[in-house]
Design a protein around this nucleic acid. Sequence first.
DNA 1: GCAAACCTTGACGTTCACGTAAACTGCGGC
DNA 2: GCCGCAGTTTACGTGAACGTCAAGGTTTGC
Lengths: 159, 159
Amino acid sequence: MSLPAARDPLLRIEAVAQRTGLTKRTIRYYEEIGLLAPSCRSDGGFRLFSEADVAHLERINALKVSAGLTLAEIHELLEAESVRERIRERFRASHDPGEKRAILAESRGVLTRQLALIERKRLALDGLIAGYRERLERVAHLDAELAEGPARKRQGALS
Amino acid sequence: MSLPAARDPLLRIEAVAQRTGLTKRTIRYYEEIGLLAPSCRSDGGFRLFSEADVAHLERINALKVSAGLTLAEIHELLEAESVRERIRERFRASHDPGEKRAILAESRGVLTRQLALIERKRLALDGLIAGYRERLERVAHLDAELAEGPARKRQGALS
DNA sequence: GCAAACCTTGACGTTCACGTAAACTGCGGC
DNA sequence: GCCGCAGTTTACGTGAACGTCAAGGTTTGC
């Protein structure tokens, strides 16, 4: 869409840490365990990060803190994405419609499994949320009763 | 609703482990860190679990594996629940409407904070789910194209 | 051209959530 | 009364996800 890498400041690790809220150690650790591709380096060996790298880190962090996934699960998701990327390559390279459909089925399998995992988590959260909402409504209801009817007692409301 | 504890088999730890899928160590650990109330014991010191205890363990496990909460977060949720329980006691004991409303506000504060935490997680998951659904649909669409139009080429479909 | 600030790679320490082994006790069957 | 299995506590081990310190090399401002 835009120029490949024209005028992309290329941040060093401290700046990336500031922007993402992660620590430098954490960023290095994520690279160490393969969550980030080995970052490009300066002549002296300093890690250099592009905006895309920052976005990637932010996505990882969101998956971790917001969605509550473990690094292993995140690894799986990213792994599945790159698997799908390779599958798409094969799909584009293939010309046999039958083979193409087989490749699609494979892709669908990967996606479906990932989706099932995430949806189970969401269902559990939905149950929790419903419970909290219900309790909040009961509290609100009680509060409304107390707010409107402090003078005229319960019996008065029956008339 | 039913008899307090009439004819409740009271399982020992092995049976509970079988039924919940947790290990005995895990069950003891949960008791150790206060996720379970110190279980009642036989004369000889064996832990004895009621159906309610089993349900409690299953709930904890669901929160852990499905919702992806940490034990600390689960602890917080349960803690908040018992806090609310005590708040309800105070509510029932109070007769001053103003005080009652203050107690309700307190309760609402606790609930709202818990709810916000969980809803953040769900939003993150929703984003993920939407992404996967979209990809699945694209795959399904491609597959449908290949299924219906293998003989008549793309150009043929335009006629 | 040099000090201060920043970076690198080890390497060891830490907390969480258990696993596992050791040593001892409770209990049903013979 | 003893065997064997299931249970108990105590205690050390482990993998994940980093924190932290040490001994160096790199960049940058003046």
